[in-house]
Computed example of a mutant assay.
Amino acid sequence: MSDPIDDLLDAAESGKSIIKNRDILHYSYIPDIILHRKSEQEQVTQSLLPILKKSRPSNLLVYGKPGTGKTLVVKKVLSKIQERVEKSNFPIKLIYSNSKEETTLYGLLVSLGRQLGLNEKELPSNGLAISVVFKRLLTKIDEDKLNAIFVIDEIDYLAQLVAKTGKDILYQLTRANERLTQGSLTLVGISNDLTFKERLDPRVISSLGEEEIVFTNYNVEQIKKILEERIHESFIPNSIEEPALNLIAALAGGEHGDARRAIDLLRVAGELAERQQSDKVTIEHVREASQKMEENKEEKSLKSFPLHEKLILIAIMKANGSSTGEIYSSYKNLCKAVGKDELTQRRITQMLSEIELSGIISGRLIHQGIHGRTKKYKLTISSEMIKKTFKDDLSLQDIV
């Protein structure tokens, strides 16, 4: 009986690979030419140009849906500026952080501080008040006479952290120059949410969005051109069937104009074709890759939920289409079953609204005449997906 591991390794060694450079299919890859974004590149460059003239640029907000090239363009412009300022004696510090990757305000500020050059002793990883951490960042900028540009990607998540903690670091960032005597601080915010400013303190809005640039969605034809460019660099010739390429462009362009999703879909389809030792990526590989990516996205999202949100989802699963009150009653029983203290009904109602924003559940208001109105929720994903994802969680095994 042959060893399945050896069989796979033998096939990989002897079979031919159709992907010649996987790095080009990674979301962090910055191509030499960014297609269909000439105007946006010009606008971002013009906004940050004052730094080359030894002046502070205006704060900049860059909007657009996921996969529209926002981060790509900003990073490319910053790298070009960095190349030029390294030849001058004007102290510039370009700093990038993604607020979605930091779960706390403290962690985000420490990430910015480390890039400014503050070590663990100067800025501990925990234990200080937020105001003290921020003061140390400004002191560093002041003492080194730095002209800092803080690029905060997915800044809408920072706005959420601010709302949860009440520590309005966005206000502090936009007012930082009033506290600096030497050096300056410019904020570049990148957001997937066109409406996130509506949730901000009015004092922040005017100073944060001194300049704004909106990135529109790519259309199907533009996504196809972007894919063709990546295929040329990353795959061996003639390894992607034309119908497969058209389907990837149609799936990504037709739904949301997301070039990053299109490139991810191309990569996963290519990897499936390789595993099956196929000479070409076909429509079947693309369909299989699309289904796999959708399942992975849902699973990853569910696993990231805190325990009480998982309990709420199980409560909804057990009585799909239930009202808030019925869900809360079921949730309380589940808390007893796993030995956890229950949260208040008011907090659970808030959490239901938060989960609804993720798209995993949907709610609708039901009018009950003289009894007022209630909201009923149901899952938008299958019960099997929830069971499959939560069965590895030891605290939930007995209730799913």
Score class of each variant (00 low, 15 high):
338 V>Y: 00
107 G>I: 01
297 K>S: 06
6 D>T: 11
206 S>I: 10
225 K>W: 02
75 K>T: 14
368 Q>D: 04
266 L>Q: 02
240 I>Y: 02
169 I>R: 00
113 G>Q: 05
170 L>S: 01
314 I>R: 02
106 Y>H: 06
5 I>Q: 07
316 I>F: 05
191 S>I: 06
269 A>K: 08
139 T>V: 10
214 V>D: 06
253 G>T: 11
128 L>Q: 03
134 F>G: 01
186 T>C: 13
329 S>V: 11
388 K>V: 01
73 V>Q: 02
102 E>I: 00
369 G>E: 13
28 S>A: 15
206 S>N: 13
53 K>V: 13
43 Q>G: 02
187 L>R: 04
243 P>T: 12
353 S>V: 06
280 K>G: 04
342 E>L: 06
312 I>A: 12
392 D>W: 00
124 P>H: 05
251 L>G: 00
65 K>Q: 13
91 P>Q: 12
254 G>F: 03
30 I>Q: 14
43 Q>F: 15
201 D>L: 14
178 E>I: 11
279 D>Q: 14
246 N>R: 14
150 F>I: 07
114 R>V: 13
354 E>M: 14
355 I>C: 07
200 L>T: 06
141 I>E: 00
263 I>R: 01
391 K>N: 04
353 S>N: 13
105 L>Y: 03
203 R>E: 15
366 I>L: 15
255 E>H: 15
250 A>P: 00
175 R>I: 05
35 L>H: 09
223 I>L: 14
169 I>N: 00
223 I>D: 08
208 L>S: 06
253 G>M: 07
249 A>T: 08
103 T>Q: 14
9 L>P: 01
322 S>I: 04
246 N>G: 06
301 S>M: 11
104 T>K: 10
268 V>I: 10
364 R>S: 12
155 I>S: 08
99 S>W: 09
44 V>H: 05
24 I>N: 02
236 I>D: 08
336 K>G: 04
360 I>L: 14
328 Y>Q: 02
109 L>N: 02
119 N>E: 09
271 E>Y: 09
182 Q>W: 12
108 L>Q: 07
273 A>N: 03
51 I>L: 13
87 K>T: 10
104 T>S: 15
35 L>G: 05
33 I>P: 00
248 I>V: 15
27 Y>K: 14
206 S>L: 07
341 D>P: 10
162 V>Q: 01
142 D>L: 08
304 S>C: 01
40 E>F: 04
202 P>T: 10
266 L>V: 03
116 L>G: 03
289 A>C: 09
78 L>E: 10
203 R>F: 04
104 T>H: 14
331 Y>S: 03
91 P>M: 11
12 A>R: 13
